[in-house]
Amino acid sequence: MIDKTIDSFSEAVNDIRDGDTVMIGGFGSSGIPLELIEALRLHGARELVIVSNNAGVAEEGIASLLRDRLVRKIVCSFPRSAGSIWFERLWERGELELELLPQGTLSERIRAAGAGIGGFFTPTGYGTRLAEGKETRVIDGRGYVLEAPLPADFALLKADRADQWGNLVYDTAGRNFNPIMATAARTTVVEVGQIVPVGDLNPECVVTPGIFVNRVIARKENRHAAA
């Protein structure tokens, strides 16, 4: 009998090791697994490579991992935003490596890793600073940049609901990077509002099939509410 439910947030992340690559879902303030990130911060693995669209604001989420010096490198499309103080501080001091990618290149590299694709040519970034050092090719008169797949050791994600098999549905735009990151990590851990019995999710509406998911955990406030 398959049950991917985990009860403890610390247990959900306790095999993340120093130097691991960790994808973190979210776009701006939406679809971020804040409780899993807090568990990772308390777990204390260091020298992490974080793959995420943004780099966190104020003291929250990814910003708290930066503040506690747990991150060696961030792979990101839009690290700077209003309130991204920890990213800016560490970047200015040269204490954080940044791999800046166009957003569609970031998501397609993640998708490629999850789909078993060995790389792809994208027109995005051709002739710009972000293509420097990358192989290019002209196909049918148009310039393209070769991009490699981007896999991870772990993905920490947020969905609205899961069942025990790890099938996922999302809340509106909270979907963003979460479904593709689920496919690209060796171990995918998902924080949800509610875990429902197998069979309760409408199969026509499942967004992430459970084959891509290893662990699901319900947020604490919801478990208290249910108790």
């Binding site: 839009f78 700077r80 569609g104 290149t105």
Partner: peptide, 10 residues
């Protein structure tokens, strides 16, 4: 000034 690109190039 730290860079950010987002979806502009796509």
């Amino acid at each position: 000034y730290p860079p950010a690109v987002g979806g502009a190039m796509d």
